[in-house]
Design a protein around this nucleic acid. Structure first.
Lengths: 348, 348
DNA sequence: GAAAACTGCTAATACGTATTAGCTGTTAAT
DNA sequence: ATTAACAGCTAATACGTATTAGCAGTTTTC
């Protein structure tokens, strides 16, 4: 079965009574070369191509020319499983859109890695199939990133990345500025005791939020509580907030915020009357919680689009790529209000 | 920039003091050939490969061997844009999972086509980059399908497809049986006047539902109403149902069902007390409506997995592929109840 | 009327790997 | 002592395209 007797340029050439080279030239010769092939011959070749339905083998094309019009997409976690789907889908949406626009195909590097541990440079690294690669994931392997940089492989990261022996080309969201903005808003609403609920891990996205958070402390606000373990019981976190005297709590994870809000409601506390809550980032799927949290919007689709465009530019002009941070617009929501006049009463 | 001085087997060969052929054999020679290379030499070559970080160029590999370990994924609509995302994501989830398991990468054929009109066989058809292809979409181009079949290109469709000059290998959901099951349930609950709200288009998925629906008519149930235009005003559809005397309405589109249920509620009618509603297929995103409709589950992930497995099998064994329909389990829901004893009263 | 320019093509080669046939030197069989 | 078998490699080629150098014949130039 599957007996592809694939047509080649040689077949076309014989049918048209020319050489393989002529067929190739007719298909995609430089204008100067084309000018030397009379219209009659060109039409004859084209006619054969039409009737046979010949299409050039992209693999052979890549062999000869070096380029492919394929963009690799490497995700450090599986892209689609539902837990991740909401995270990756908006990126992929933007990537696909821009790829289609630029007439590139996408190669999802899914096979790489042993077990669940995905690696870019695995034993059989398939990166080179693509002309370049987009890298995304919650947390990167810095050694791999460093290798991409030193090898000068054309790639673009989605999300800001620290230098690794050289600048990493990326398109990220400006979490630091957006976080700072929300803190300033809280302070201007009278809050001076702030809580930060989230980890301090090494990931850039976490670092940026923390930086944005602490950068304005001292100018009216101060840190009353820092819970760095996520997924603690909601009641415990709530207790911490209340007893610390914090009047505004900043959450890294929407999930934590949802749970704490529910716990507060259960205790008869209401947000933002009794205390304010802010989520540092987009609600990935807002529909799940009825509460519209004050937060900021991460322009994931746009990140995907711009990263793709940057990558294509890197490939086509052999340039080095740059570093772009996109603004994350604040989302007003309904969980940030003025500082309660008598916060102590909350404890009753 | 991007000065890849890509390592080749020739470089490795020189460094190890052997020939290019030996390097290739060390990497993936048949056992019989490998047996003739002493461990010492193999280790020497492996060592060079290790230290240099050489990886074979998959393109050249494909050139020489004909296979790639890449599966193409062709979608007739963009896969990710949010309207489609909920439709395609479960399929892709299954596909990605199985692809990773079988150690294949996925090539998303996004570039093909002119404007929004995607085509498999466009002027520069990139299908051949992959070893085979999965084809998905709400509606297929039968001519393209026929061409895939006659060219004996290894592909598998997701969703049942009619023969097109030959059997089409597919993994689909058994909508016909699942629909029949729901109709039988309604009949056994005393319903005899049934409404069908949905188109009759040429798409197989629509045909199958309609077949399942009509196949049991006459044996206790009969068609009281058939609204074939979708997206009509909900009130109008509701009027039709009520005035036709139908006591159970079957919907192709969840969206229509949601709207009609809302309209009914507004008029003081309740489901399933006043009339029953059934949706023929999975709620793609159940969360949006509070009502849990009686329907059946389309095992999209499993379809993706099995289609991928079938495709890999087709590729690796050069077999022809088969046709598989997966069972769609009924979802009980809360919108199918006994036939109201005095349906006329509903009109009041 | 010889050189130059141009026209219409083709031969040859590169791309990087897989694979087969086969070469050279050694050991085993008869 | 000759042949046969085998060990340890390598040369050569195929895969399908893109591209450059250049050939043979015709036309232009001065």
């Amino acid at each position: 079965m599957t007996g592809h007797k694939r047509l080649t340029q040689n077949d076309i050439a014989k049918l048209a009574g020319v050489s393989q080279a002529t067929v190739s030239l007719v298909l995609n010769g430089a204008p100067t070369a084309l000018a030397r092939i009379p219209a009659e011959t060109r039409e004859r070749v084209q006619a054969v191509i039409q009737t046979t339905g010949y299409v050039a083998d992209p693999i052979a094309r890549r062999m000869a020319k070096g380029l492919n019009r394929i963009l690799g997409v490497f995700t450090y976690e599986p892209a689609f499983p539902s837990a991740q789907a909401d995270f990756f889908t908006p990126f992929l949406l933007g990537i696909e859109e821009e790829a289609q626009h630029q007439n590139y195909d996408l190669l999802l590097l899914t096979s790489a890695g042993v077990g669940n541990n995905r690696k870019i440079f695995s034993e059989n690294n398939r990166l080179r199939i693509a002309d370049g690669c987009l890298v995304l994931g919650r947390e990167f392997d810095r050694k791999e990133l460093a290798r991409l940089v030193t090898e000068d492989y054309p790639f673009v990261a989605i999300g800001r990345r620290d230098d690794v022996g050289g600048p990493v080309p990326y398109v990220g969201g400006d979490y630091e500025a957006a976080t700072r903005h929300l803190v300033e808003m809280a302070v201007s609403l009278g809050h001076s005791q702030l809580a930060y609920i989230g980890p301090e891990g090494p990931a850039e996205s976490i670092v940026d939020r923390w930086r944005g958070f602490v950068s304005t402390l001292g100018e009216g606000g101060e840190l009353a509580l820092h819970v760095d373990a996520v997924n603690r019981p909601a009641g415990e976190i709530l207790d911490g907030i209340v007893s610390s005297g914090a009047t505004a709590a900043f959450f890294i994870e929407l999930a934590d915020a949802v749970r704490v809000e529910a716990a507060a409601r259960e205790r008869g506390l209401s947000v933002p009357q009794d205390f304010s809550m802010v989520v540092l980032g987009s609600h990935i799927r807002a529909g799940r919680s009825p509460v519209r949290f004050t937060s900021y919007d991460i322009p994931r689709e746009e990140m995907g689009r711009q990263a793709t465009a940057m990558l294509v530019n890197r490939i086509e002009t052999a340039s080095a790529g740059s570093q772009i941070l996109l603004t994350c617009e604040p989302v007003e929501g309904e969980t940030l209000g003025p500082c309660p006049s008598n916060p102590a009463k909350r404890a009753q």
